[in-house]
Structure formats: structure tokens, C-alpha cells
């Protein structure tokens, strides 16, 4: 997206802005009289990746793949079960209250739902300015000025400060959410399905806006979504998640042109393409994603995999480099 990224090789990551190592998040299921843990929902089951400064990493997966959990765990909106994450070498998960407060200035999040993500009882000015207030930045007057500027930056009028979220359309609300995320001048923005609730024509506006902001403010994005075409449009590299694990990770173009993991292949083959003349061989996977409470042994994907063997049930494939910069977790990739 930005010039500096195009130069750097996307997988040779030195001094990554964000590094996530063996991230695990289990949600316990309580049951019985004493409310003991009877099972775990293994939402994220050992995820590692790095994001270089200025880069956009797309994290794609279907519902239940754990992609949103990864996003929220990195922000410590939900506590991780194990693993580690560093922002420019500083541990996020081990950060004490004060350090975490500082880290939160540098990592922000944009949400999917333009209705649920804005407090209906706060004015737009209060919403966008909250980060400044919480971190004690500027006087009330200065904050108002910053908020007005931020609103203009995302394509809204500064005078809209005094209005309430319900007065805006979905796309406008999403812009307000983006302005809020920008207020603290973060280094990393985690965008959790930022356009999937929007109409097609609004989608392109927001995607363009996100690209503009990346150039303007030197932002790094972790872009979480389920729509491959959208992810491809914004991402430098793409990580594909299935049932709590990254199954493939590669530069965007490489992944789209030559996917190596059977899940990625199937995923790409069934995405409806707005071109009726195109006749593709589709790999329609049978069945559905198994429950993350009780994932299959060995390879998590083997129950739906067209090429699975007995070996896949016994040995879990590691995410290994299958070609330069391209990683896949499949014995046969």
C-alpha cells in the first residue's frame, strides 16, 4: 500500500511493530452445581505472526475461526490463556496497568457494527475525544479543536461534534469510529471486519479512506475480515485462519495466485466472482467447521479436506515455509 512497504520483503521481518507468539485463548465452559470447567472452547490455539511497521496484514477466516478473538486478545480486551505479544519489543500481555495504559495509546481498534460500536448516549465529540480525555491530552478547548480536525480527516464536518450517533448513517458512523481510533495517533490499528456491515458502495469509500489514512499517518493495520476480495484489496500479506490456527500465511498476491493449503484453495475457489463468463472449477467443501470445543486430532482441517490421509489424523502439521515467504500448515503443501 505505502511505498516503503513495497520495497521491503514482507516476510523478512526485523524489528516488527507487532509480534505475536503462540497465542492461545480458551474460553472455559462452566457446568454443574459448582460451576467447574467442564470443557474449553479452543478459540485460538497457538497463533504466531509478525506485522512490520507500515504493513497491512489481513487475517481472514470464517465465523468460529478465532480471528476476532486474536484481534481482541492482542488489545487485552479479553485476557489470553497463554502466549506472548510484543509491541515494538514491549510485552503487551505482561504489561502492568500503567504500561498497558501507554500501550493502548499506540494500538487502537475499529469495530464491525456501526450501530453497536458507538455509545448512543454520547455526542460524537465526546466519543471521538474520549481517548484524549482519558489520557489527559490538551485542554477541553484544544480537545474540541482536535476532534473537529479528526472529523474532517475522516470526511465528516467538524460541526457534527455536538450530534449523537443515531443521526448518522452506517457509513458515517463507521467514519466516526475511525476518527475515534485515530485520536491518540496510534501506531497500529486493528480493524475487525470494518466494512462487512456496510453496503457495497460504502464499502469502497471506507476502504479508500483506510488506505489514505495509512499513508497520511504512517499506520500499520491488522485487518480482520471474512471477505477475501476485500482483504486482498487492502493487505500486503494475508493469514488464513481455520479453527483456531493459521493454516496459511503469504504475501497477498502469492496467496491468491498460488494457494498451497487445501483450505485456502477451496476458499478461493468458491468465492462468487462478479463475472458470469468465468467458469471455474469449484471445490465445494462438504460438512461444516467442527466445534472448537472438540477439534479433530492431528490437522484441524482434515475432516473436510479433500486430500486428507490417516497421517493427518495422527500428526499435526506445523506452519512451515513452503516457498519463499509463503507458509502453510499442511503435510502435502
Amino acid at each position: 500500500m505505502s511505498k516503503q512497504k513495497q520495497k521491503a520483503h514482507p516476510t523478512v521481518v526485523n524489528g516488527a511493530l507487532l509480534k505475536v507468539q503462540d497465542l492461545v485463548k480458551f474460553f472455559p465452559i462452566k457446568g454443574g452445581l459448582l460451576q467447574t470447567t467442564v470443557a474449553n472452547v479452543k478459540a485460538v490455539d497457538g497463533v504466531s505472526f509478525e506485522i512490520k511497521k507500515g504493513e497491512t496484514l489481513g487475517l481472514i477466516g470464517e465465523s468460529g475461526s478465532g480471528k476476532s478473538t486474536v484481534a481482541r486478545t492482542i488489545l487485552r480486551l479479553i485476557p489470553p490463556t497463554s502466549g506472548e505479544a510484543w509491541l515494538e519489543g514491549r510485552s503487551i500481555f505482561k504489561a502492568k496497568k500503567k504500561e498497558l495504559h501507554e500501550i493502548r495509546r499506540e494500538v487502537q481498534i475499529i469495530f464491525q457494527d456501526p450501530y453497536g460500536s458507538l455509545n448512543p448516549r454520547m455526542s460524537v465529540g465526546e466519543i471521538v475525544g474520549e481517548g484524549l480525555l482519558v489520557h489527559g491530552i490538551g485542554s477541553a478547548h484544544e480537545r474540541d479543536k482536535i476532534v473537529s480536525e479528526l472529523l474532517e480527516v475522516v470526511g465528516l464536518r467538524g460541526q457534527y461534534r455536538g450530534r449523537f450517533p443515531h443521526e448518522f448513517s452506517g457509513g458515517q458512523r463507521q467514519r466516526i469510529g475511525i476518527a475515534r481510533a485515530l485520536a491518540l495517533r496510534p501506531k497500529l490499528i486493528i480493524a475487525d471486519e470494518p466494512v462487512s456491515a456496510l453496503d457495497v458502495s460504502i464499502q469502497s469509500q471506507i476502504l479508500n479512506l483506510l488506505e489514505d489514512l495509512q499513508n497520511e499517518f504512517d499506520l500499520t493495520y491488522l485487518f480482520v475480515a471474512h471477505n477475501m476480495a476485500v482483504v486482498e484489496q487492502v493487505s500486503d500479506r494475508i493469514a488464513v485462519m481455520y479453527l483456531g490456527k493459521i493454516v496459511e500465511l503469504a504475501p497477498a498476491e502469492q496467496l491468491l495466485r498460488g494457494p498451497r493449503h487445501p483450505y485456502t484453495k477451496a476458499l478461493i475457489s468458491v468465492i462468487p466472482i462478479p463475472d458470469p463468463t468465468l467458469r471455474r472449477d469449484q471445490t465445494v467443501l462438504s460438512g461444516e467447521m467442527p466445534s472448537p470445543t472438540n477439534p479433530p486430532s492431528g490437522c484441524h482441517f482434515r475432516t473436510r479436506c479433500p486430500i486428507a490421509t490417516d497421517y493427518c489424523a495422527e500428526v499435526e502439521p506445523a506452519l512451515r515455509e513452503v516457498s519463499k515467504g509463503q507458509f502453510a500448515a499442511c503435510h502435502y503443501a
Binding site: R105, Q108, F111, G116, S117, L118, I127, E130, G131, A183
Partner: peptide
Amino acid sequence: EQEFVQAARALGAS
């Protein structure tokens, strides 16, 4: 669990 509460938490609100 609302996203605006998550957003506030992400901003560092107490």
C-alpha cells in the same frame, strides 16, 4: 459486551 464499551476499554478508560 457492547462494542462501544470494548472501544472505551481499548482507549484506556478506567
